[in-house]
Design a protein around this nucleic acid. Structure first.
Lengths: 109, 109
DNA sequence: TAATATTACTTTGACAGATAGAGTAATTTA
DNA sequence: TAAATTACTCTATCTGTCAAAGTAATATTA
């Protein structure tokens, strides 16, 4: 399990990326992350909803309630045009981050 | 310039890695990071010394004052055996982090 | 059908890492 | 000798993460 400090700051991008595929609600995204990473990373509930709030405030996503449910009422999130542009930027930034950290981390063995 | 949140959590490893090469003092490390990354990343002074304190508290590094100086008194840091083992772990962790984030970030274009 | 599990979201408070800003002090350079 | 540079320290603040506790609806199982 990856420490959250290590992944910190990338959560916004990860969530945006998943919502880009299709509109999704929180619980669904949480499960998807666990599945996709084979439990090597799990997002905590409180963290996930904090991300949503932050992204919505920045107008990178928008939300609406779904009509079908399986328990609690599902709140769906959709990415905005602005959110798409932002995501593109963060993907570039991730490439650069990798390069920079690798400058220090490579050639150790 | 990389946002600090993005690199957050990797600073300990980066500093440890540099000290592994040879004993170094803060100011020197700061300059080295700027040089090595061609200013794409600069560590803030306050952050650097906070890292030192944290690493020393965890006994991953040790410090001693140098006798030559060029202004302020130089405090040198050296990595401990425990620090070396820890660094090895974080390098592995970095590889895994890359894999995991790439799971989400790849195939966007 | 009543108890329990699961789904789903929200809020609060605490904590840790990063950093601006201000300060101290010695040495170098102009 | 004044200003610049080198070098470190401390404090207060901000932000992201998360534990914990709560609300509420649906599904399962006994």
């Amino acid at each position: 399990m990856i420490r959250s400090d290590i992944i910190r700051g990338h959560l916004d991008s990860i969530i945006l990326r998943l919502i880009l595929e299709k509109d999704q609600y929180g619980y669904e995204i949480s499960k998807q992350i666990s599945l996709k990473t084979k439990d090597r990373f799990q997002i905590k509930e409180a963290t996930l909803y904090a991300v949503f709030q932050r992204l919505e405030k920045k107008e990178l996503i928008e939300s609406y309630f779904g009509n079908i449910s399986h328990g609690g009422k599902r709140k769906y999130y959709t990415i905005t045009t602005f959110g798409k542009a932002y995501l593109k930027e963060t993907v570039k930034e991730w490439q650069e981050t990798k390069e920079i950290i690798d400058l220090f981390m490579e050639g150790l063995d």
